[in-house]
Amino acid sequence: MADVMHRSRPLLRTLVGDVLRRRRREQERTLAEVARDASVSVQYLSEVERGRKEASSEIVAAVCDSLGIELADLLAEVGRDLVVHRAPVVRLETARVRLEAARPHRAARMPRSSGAGEVVLLAA
C-alpha cells in the first residue's frame, strides 16, 4: 500500500526538473547553453531536468539565473503543477448528499448520523 501511495505522488525533484526543462525549451535554449551559464555539466543538468538528481539550492539558483527567472516564479510554477497532480478530495457531507440523491428510496429510511463512529472509505 505504501508503494502505491508513494508512486501516486510526484517527487519535488521531478516537478522542479519539469519546470526548468519547460522554461529552457520556451527560450529555445540548449542544455549546453544553460549548463555553461549555470556552471554545471550538461549531464548533471539533464539529470536534474529529468528528476533523477536532487539539485542543491545553489544549483537551482544558478540554473534560474541562467534562465533569467526568479526562484519565486520557479516555485510558484512547481506549486501549480503540484496542484494538478493532487487527488481530488470529496467531503463526507458532499458524498452523503450524492448518495441520498442517487438512492432516494433508501434515503428516506436512513437516519442522519451524528458523525460519531462513522466509517469512511476513500478511493482513488
Rank of each mutant, 00 (worst) to 15 (best):
residue 4 V to G: 05
residue 5 M to P: 01
residue 6 H to N: 04
residue 6 H to S: 08
residue 8 S to P: 00
residue 9 R to G: 06
residue 9 R to M: 05
residue 10 P to H: 05
residue 11 L to N: 03
residue 12 L to Y: 06
residue 12 L to E: 15
residue 13 R to F: 03
residue 17 G to V: 07
residue 17 G to L: 05
residue 18 D to S: 13
residue 18 D to L: 11
residue 19 V to N: 05
residue 19 V to A: 12
residue 19 V to T: 13
residue 20 L to Y: 00
residue 21 R to P: 02
residue 23 R to V: 10
residue 27 Q to L: 15
residue 28 E to W: 07
residue 32 A to K: 15
residue 32 A to P: 03
residue 33 E to P: 00
residue 35 A to R: 01
residue 37 D to L: 15
residue 39 S to M: 03
residue 39 S to C: 03
residue 39 S to F: 03
residue 40 V to I: 12
residue 40 V to S: 03
residue 41 S to R: 09
residue 46 S to P: 01
residue 46 S to Y: 06
residue 47 E to G: 02
residue 49 E to N: 02
residue 52 R to N: 10
residue 53 K to C: 04
residue 54 E to T: 08
residue 55 A to G: 04
residue 57 S to L: 15
residue 59 I to W: 04
residue 60 V to R: 06
residue 61 A to T: 08
residue 62 A to E: 07
residue 64 C to L: 10
residue 64 C to K: 09
residue 66 S to V: 00
residue 68 G to I: 10
residue 69 I to T: 14
residue 71 L to Q: 06
residue 73 D to Q: 11
residue 73 D to A: 14
residue 74 L to G: 01
residue 74 L to P: 05
residue 74 L to E: 06
residue 76 A to S: 04
residue 77 E to A: 02
residue 78 V to N: 03
residue 78 V to T: 04
residue 79 G to C: 02
residue 80 R to C: 05
residue 83 V to P: 02
residue 85 H to D: 15
residue 87 A to R: 13
residue 88 P to N: 07
residue 89 V to T: 15
residue 89 V to L: 11
residue 92 L to V: 13
residue 93 E to I: 14
residue 93 E to D: 15
residue 93 E to V: 14
residue 94 T to P: 02
residue 96 R to S: 05
residue 96 R to T: 02
residue 99 L to R: 12
residue 99 L to M: 09
residue 102 A to V: 00
residue 103 R to H: 11
residue 105 H to K: 06
residue 106 R to N: 04
residue 108 A to T: 10
residue 108 A to I: 08
residue 108 A to S: 12
residue 110 M to F: 07
residue 111 P to L: 10
residue 112 R to D: 01
residue 113 S to E: 04
residue 113 S to W: 07
residue 114 S to P: 04
residue 114 S to T: 11
residue 116 A to V: 12
